[in-house]
Every structure is written in C-alpha cells, then in structure tokens.
C-alpha cells in the first residue's frame, strides 16, 4: 500500500491552474523526487498533501488517512523540512527541538530523551546550547532536518532541502537522508537540482504546469526520454556547423545561446566529423537527467 497516494489533484488560483490533475504515489521506504521548474506546482502539492491547502479536486490519502479531513492525525506521523528555514531565532538549538516536540503533544521528558540522538544525527552535539543566529547555513539546515524527526515520523517531506548550501553542506544533508532511508523512512523531496535527484531518488516525477509529464527511476527516465550521448559544441561557428554537419550525424540538435547540443545514440561519426574542425570546442558526455528535464520542460526561463 502506498504511503502517499494522490489522485487527480487540482488547485486553481484565479485564472491559472497551479496543479492540474496530478497523480502521485509513494512506495514505502523509497525516496521519491518531485522535479519541476519554478512555478511547476511543487510546493502547492506538498502543502495539499499536508492538508494546509484544500485542493479544488482530487483525492489524497497519507498513511492511509484521508487528507485534508484527517490531516491533523496524518501530520502526527509526518516530518517536514520547509523551503525557508523557520527555526525559532529566540531559542537555542535544544530549545528549538524541545518546543517543536511539544507541538506533537510529546511530553518534555520524552523529547529530552530524544534530543541527544537528534543532535548526533545533525552533527550538532557541541552546539546544543548555541543560539540560532550563531549557526552557519548548513548547520541550520541540519537542525531543521533534525527538528523534522522529533516525532519519529514515518514519512518526511523536504521542500528543496539543499537550496543555498555549499557543496560540503549538501553532501552532509544527502548522507543524512540516506541514513533515514536505511532506517526505512519514506521520503518525498522537491528539487530542481538534477544531481540531487539522480543521487538520492528511487523514483522521480517530473512535473510542469501542474501536471506529471514523466515518471520513473532516474535511469529509466534517461533511457526512455533521451539519446544516450550528448556532444556540446561551443565557439563562433558552432551554430552554423551544427545546423549543417551536426544535423547529418546527430539524432537531434538543440541550440541554447552560443552552445549547440547534439543528441545521438551513435556518437562516433559525429566525433569523427569534428576532427576536421579543430576550431570548434566540444564536450562529449553521457546524457543525464538534466538533458531529460530540459527536453521535457523546455529551455525558456520560468520566473
């Protein structure tokens, strides 16, 4: 039985349909990614799953409870890491965890018993009494993640968990999430970082304009939706060469600014042809999730 099951979810704001018939199903113990450009409806979807926004249509069950009617009971067993840190700046690290645990109806003694392991998980043992303002961005994120675990949830929702973090801090968060998965937790995360999705997620749903446009494991998505190899061409004549020679050897080309992307399942002829043009710079690489994402959602900016 899926941990989260949403069918034909809809939400309209004025004339625009932010979520337009989305289906979503989370298997127990898996990490599920919700991938989409800005404004695709990711955060709105999360809020509907939490019962914070009432959908205009569709059905939601979370941990076998109907949402929003029994959202309160469902939230007892959900942990949430929001997009923006909203730790309590008036409190120390420990007080943040204690206060948050009380919202779940936990007794102070029970929370205090859990705090050492939460601090351990967040790598904040030595900062238990620190004020929030003195923590780095990465520490705050880790504390936010630890705070989401104060109720020992079965499922954890993370809204862009590593946005704004440096590479070191992102890796620490990813390690933490893997640890949670190994403990059998179910994770739903939204992101627009392809490497994050590729590394962590067992399943991905790519959404755009409130609809699911592709679903599968990262590998399946790459295998199904895109050619295996990409040759990126740069330089003054890249565009001209790409349109003539490139078209002959590649399955498909795309242009973005000064760069030409040649997608192909057989890169050899293309690379051979490039030998005659030492003035063109190129990069040959396997296709990745970002290529899939850009193919499916387009290259124009979303603001």
């Amino acid at each position: 039985m899926p941990v989260v099951n949403a069918r034909n979810l809809r939400k309209q704001y004025g004339p625009s349909e932010v979520v337009a018939g989305l289906d979503l199903s989370l298997a127990s113990g898996a990490c599920h990614g919700l991938l989409g450009p800005n404004g695709a409806g990711k955060t709105t979807t999360l809020k509907m799953l939490l019962g914070l926004i009432e959908p205009d249509g569709g059905e939601i069950r979370v941990l076998d409870l109907p949402v929003p009617s029994l959202a309160r009971q469902a939230r007892v067993r959900i942990g949430v890491v929001p997009q923006m840190d909203n730790l309590d700046p008036d409190f120390s690290v420990t007080e943040n965890l204690l206060t948050y645990g009380r919202y779940f109806g936990l007794k102070d003694a029970a929370i205090r018993d859990r705090i050492p392991s939460l601090l351990d998980f967040a790598g904040l043992n030595s900062r238990a009494e620190s004020r929030i303002q003195t923590l780095s961005g990465g520490m705050k994120r880790r504390l936010t993640l630890a705070r989401a675990l104060v109720n020992d949830p079965d499922v954890i929702f993370l809204d862009e968990p590593t946005t704004g973090l440096d590479p070191q801090a992102r890796h620490v968060i990813w390690q933490g999430l893997r640890k949670l998965l190994s403990r059998g937790k179910t994770i739903l995360l939204t992101t627009h970082f392809m490497d994050e999705a590729e590394r962590l997620c067992d399943r991905l749903t790519i959404i755009d304009r409130g609809r699911s446009i592709a679903e599968g494991s990262p590998r399946e998505l790459i295998a199904t939706h895109i050619e295996s190899d990409v040759v990126e061409l740069y330089g003054e004549d890249a565009s001209g060469w790409g349109r003539q020679e490139g078209m002959l050897h590649a399955d498909r080309i795309e242009e973005a600014g000064e760069t030409v992307f040649c997608y192909t399942r057989h890169p050899r002829p293309l690379l051979d042809a490039l030998k005659d043009r030492p003035d063109l710079k190129y990069l040959h690489r396997p296709a990745n999730l970002e290529d899939v994402f850009l193919k499916l959602t387009g290259r124009e900016l979303r603001d």
Binding site: N86, Y103, G105, N151
Partner: peptide
C-alpha cells in the same frame, strides 16, 4: 520569522 508556518506543519 515564519514561526506560525513551522507550527502548521505539526498536528
């Protein structure tokens, strides 16, 4: 501080 938002994610 978005304290209320944080609380609304709990029961």
């Amino acid at each position: 501080q978005k304290t209320w938002e944080a609380i609304l994610n709990t029961p």
